[in-house]
């Protein structure tokens, strides 16, 4: 707490200094890395609601507040973060880190992004194993199984209704086939992903080809 209070008043002036240096083309690596680390650490520790929210907040921080990345470029970076495998929050930290400070930037911002969940889950895992058999903990967790099932089913319903509404027959077919393959036939998740990706690649290739021909 003491250290945080010490840093708060000076943060504004440090940011201003970095902004000036960037504007003048003089990058101070140490300050950029520090800013990257604390931004991703803070966002990762206090953002509930998943990766998409974090990416929006990263944009707000680095585009709107600090003006280190311009808006159009950020849109492309966000597209890269969302198109890549892995957690969107981590991917968002990677693109911003790479853009501002190369590989050291990636390392620093990823560290900032994963440190909070790492610490929180380490603590919870200790308590979980110690209190799993406790009557109160067990009753609450049992009830929550119904709650989390409902959360997942409602998320699936929202996502699936988007696909149904798009009236894209091939996508609809992919959804049904993958469900049957995975749930009833036990086909490996990775095969399902590779299969769907192959269909997507073929469709896109045909669209490009058709576009070039016409």
């Amino acid at each position: 707490m003491y250290a945080m209070n010490q840093n708060v008043p000076s943060e504004e002036s440090v940011q201003q200094k970095i902004t000036n240096q960037l504007a003048g083309g003089k990058h101070n690596r140490g300050q950029i890395l520090r800013q990257l680390f604390f931004s991703t650490l803070y966002l990762s520790a206090f953002t509930f609601g998943g990766g998409y929210v974090i990416v929006t907040l990263l944009k707000k921080k680095f585009v709107d507040d600090l003006h280190w990345i311009d808006e159009d470029e950020m849109l492309d970076l966000v597209a890269i973060a969302q198109s890549s495998p892995g957690a969107i929050a981590v991917n968002g930290a990677i693109v911003v880190g790479y853009k501002l400070a190369g590989i050291p930037g990636v390392l620093v911002s990823v560290l900032g992004a994963i440190l909070p969940p790492f610490i929180i889950i380490t603590a919870i895992s200790f308590f979980y194993n110690a209190f799993k058999s406790n009557f109160i903990v067990q009753a609450v967790l049992t009830g929550m199984k119904a709650g989390v099932s409902a959360v997942i089913i409602s998320v699936v319903f929202d996502m699936a209704s988007g696909i149904v509404k798009s009236k894209d027959m091939i996508n609809l077919l992919i959804m049904v086939i993958v469900f049957i393959a995975n749930y009833f036939l036990g086909v490996n998740v990775i095969w399902c992903i590779l299969g769907a990706a192959a269909v997507g690649a073929i469709r896109t290739a045909i669209r490009f080809h058709g576009g070039a021909a016409s």
Partner: peptide, 28 residues
């Protein structure tokens, strides 16, 4: 290449929804 990636992602989305549903049923 970005359009290609987005195209692949477009077909992955329904597959991912189906697999989340499947995993959700295993919990439910």
């Amino acid at each position: 290449k970005m359009a290609m990636l987005q195209g692949i992602l477009g077909s992955l989305r329904p597959a991912v929804v189906a697999m989340i549903f499947s995993a959700g049923l295993l919990i439910l």
